[in-house]
Design a protein around this nucleic acid. Structure first.
Lengths: 228, 228
DNA sequence: CAGAAAAGCTGACAATTATCATGTTTTAAA
DNA sequence: TTTAAAACATGATAATTGTCAGCTTTTCTG
């Protein structure tokens, strides 16, 4: 079993504020596991009872709307932690997480994290800052969803993906989303998303090779996303 | 000047976790002020440099979209605190707050709150819980904005207002929103909001007397908001 | 109180977006 | 490898929503 105190991944998230002793204790109680593409990490209404630290891979975090369509709210990748919110407010998850490619994750049981949260103010303050930041980003998403057209939101989303994920050797964005996934991020019908992707391709803003997406014209996408 | 340690308002928010000594110190450095209807508490891009505790009145908290329309993201009322996020991540506000009726607020300077945050784990943990909860609510808003029709969102919003605010003696919701405000909560054109309000009134789901809104049929609104 | 400005309302029409239908391509399982 | 299922793509059409225009009512200001 790999040791948390030697794991570089934690430098990307709030776990970096834990002391060496705390990390050693976490090593002793955490579990590592592989999650295959398509597998559910946790479902809506489920008690997570801990926190995931993502070592590799990507998952989509979504919520079912009353209308019966899934809305993808977050994409979580290497370095991120997952489940901290349900842990803090001690409730069942309001979200569902599904791997979109094979993942390597560590799972830290609830009680251990709570203990650190209560005893290490660096940890709780860092988490507080992280949450304040997430709330700010959520504001932006709400405004975009409420005010932008589907075309603007697609442009916004493509730029977001470009910024968030690494590139493959051929220059495509290193994330494996289906057209339906993209539609569920934007909040539109799959057909509408496909149509607009085709339009963007025709206008040379992007290129598409199967599921691979290449961003060709950032400036034009930015203008589009801002309504010009 | 009124004393924080005797103020009942703090029981409604995270300030309730402060000790008597901390409250006495806050009393010494806080300022009380009246904000008239229409006045700006803080604007986008402004450094707030502290936290507001709302003693009376309501304000709308909004963000300008790229398209140039304001989106109202929160309604803040008596008992709420305001500005804690910008304080925690030490950035300028991404939001703008305007009073929608006359308000009584207290303002606590940044350094004093930060001090309590670092020294009183009850306070920081309570704030953390509050933020985790806000994030959960933000998820719901994102899903609604992304997936629901304007009609569904209006129904959702009316139920939200009904639940959040007290009633006037005649039974109307005790909040003074213009039609434009309502449209800016829902994320639609003012004309669309007006049209749907008229439709709801015609169908006896609500009644309207000027700016006063009366909820007549909660069940029907709930069904509508869920897409039936 | 009068006049001006703002807010509210409604109709007509245009633009956007969803839905349904159908065919093609890709993926995954036997 | 074959075959079935899923994903992708596009057209046609309907429903939703936005925009503009014109009018009425309410609110604000001097």
């Amino acid at each position: 079993m790999s040791k948390c105190e030697q794991c570089i991944i934690r430098e990307f998230n709030s776990l970096k504020t834990l002391t060496k002793d705390e990390l050693i204790r976490i090593t002793g109680c955490k579990t590592s596991k592989t999650v295959k593409k398509g597998e559910v990490l946790f479902d809506e209404g489920e008690h997570i009872n801990g926190v995931f630290c993502i070592k590799d891979g990507v998952c989509k975090v979504s919520k079912m709307s009353d209308n019966g369509r899934d809305q993808i709210i977050h994409l979580i990748q290497k370095g991120d932690i997952l489940g901290e919110r349900s842990l803090i407010n001690n409730e069942a998850s309001n979200l569902k997480a599904i791997a979109i490619n094979d993942m390597e994750v560590c799972f830290i049981p609830k009680d251990e994290i709570i203990r650190d949260l209560e005893n290490n103010p660096n940890f709780s303050l860092d988490l507080l800052r992280k949450m304040a930041n997430s709330l700010k980003k959520a504001d932006d998403v709400i405004v975009d969803m409420a005010q932008k057209t589907v075309k603007q939101r697609l442009a916004t989303t493509l730029l977001f993906l470009e910024a968030k994920f690494d590139k493959n050797e051929n220059g495509s964005i290193k994330v494996n989303l289906s057209r339906e996934d993209i539609a569920n991020i934007i909040g539109t019908a799959t057909e509408s998303a496909i149509r607009l992707l085709s339009e963007f391709k025709k206008k040379k803003l992007i290129d598409l090779k199967g599921k691979e997406v290449f961003i060709l014209n950032v400036k034009a996408l930015k203008d589009l996303s801002e309504g010009f």
